[in-house]
Design a protein around this nucleic acid. Sequence first.
DNA 1: GGTATTCATCTTGTATACAAGAACTTTTAA
DNA 2: TTAAAAGTTCTTGTATACAAGATGAATACC
Lengths: 226, 226
Amino acid sequence: MNTLSPPSPSPHVPLSHQLAETIEEDIVTQRLPPGSKLDEVMLANRFQVSRTPIREALIQLASGGFVELRPRRGAIVTRADPHRLLEMFEVMAELEAYCGRLAARRANSGERQALLTAHVACEAASHAGDPDRYFYLNEHFHQTLYKLSHNSFLEEQARQLQKRLRPYRRLQLRVRRRTEQSYQEHQSIVEAIVSGNEDMAAQAIRAHIRIQGERFADLMASLQGG
Amino acid sequence: MNTLSPPSPSPHVPLSHQLAETIEEDIVTQRLPPGSKLDEVMLANRFQVSRTPIREALIQLASGGFVELRPRRGAIVTRADPHRLLEMFEVMAELEAYCGRLAARRANSGERQALLTAHVACEAASHAGDPDRYFYLNEHFHQTLYKLSHNSFLEEQARQLQKRLRPYRRLQLRVRRRTEQSYQEHQSIVEAIVSGNEDMAAQAIRAHIRIQGERFADLMASLQGG
DNA sequence: GGTATTCATCTTGTATACAAGAACTTTTAA
DNA sequence: TTAAAAGTTCTTGTATACAAGATGAATACC
């Protein structure tokens, strides 16, 4: 037995894992909208595999909250009702606010610079009102924030929830001048963290995330009413 | 060999789900300690089922963070290193603190009474220094707290993490006079929530949870050193 | 005509079969 | 004696087979 070289991570990735990632991507990008039925045979044919890895992928997705497994009645893409989404945004706001607080406390100068860089990168897309590009850069900005917390578990939790809320956040940016407003909010966040103001960082982030939940609620209400 | 109780017969729930619950219970109660190898054939024999539902259960457990799936090399019970656990306790502290804040803001008088009842129930076990009984009642107290947040998503997240940290919290209560101290801390929490003092509730809970993480770190350090 | 019931079909849940990589054992070379 | 190499066994990953509940259609009944 060789004790010097550590066991290298197996290069082999199970099919079910790859399938889960692919299907999850289809869900968060709305190619598979909430409520879609996920027929095992259909998916098996589509990906040219047997039902076994498909089922295993669906179980992973269910554990992540992306799909709902109804015993003996198949899987559907989770459809979150507005109230549930508000709750999720509430939790997201707290998680991110805590990331910000820790970032303000723990981030070194290089990391603060990285956050600033990620922020500046958003500027052009914001002013141009390019929601797709802004969406991408915005995600990067927030993920940078998570990393600066120096708490990898918190970072993972935040990323997971970010992904889960992705379809609903995406909608927001189509609202008039939302990208510019979002960018302004980022400005306050960056200032607070760079200057090491924990409370201000937490408060700015909380407000930033909450706005999305509330806007979503408004949107849903208007759709109900119209 | 240790007898792991078979899954309870429940016709409409998939086997894999029951198996996952049973195995998870064995993990959080340390009947399957961190690092244990989870051989698929062995588990299949033990539960008198085929490997298929066993594999599906393991995937669910992996998504919940209870086991680690190493491609082509089998599953083991997750062994969290001390640093990781500190991180998890940090996040738990924030989640629960937020539960407490929302509870102080939102709970009605009946709910406040329920919390008080759950608290008082802990008293006898605390003074008797009965860690097992206190552990059970303590979990109920905290779960009541989660419910009072009036945010079911937050409640679920908190319960999940509570379960995941269970093996490590359980250790704490064996420490001398820890049950009494825990009970005292609960006292401050209850007072804050009943009186509707959000900040005090959040702060008291944060401290309460943090102590566990820090005590755990101390314990690990002493084991390392000795 | 509408509703309940029975039967055929389809889909899911579990078991078994087979293929391929990992672990272990034995052999061989220095 | 130690270490590398080869061969064997064992375990996991995927495919297929089969059983049982769910869906839907046709029929019987009011």
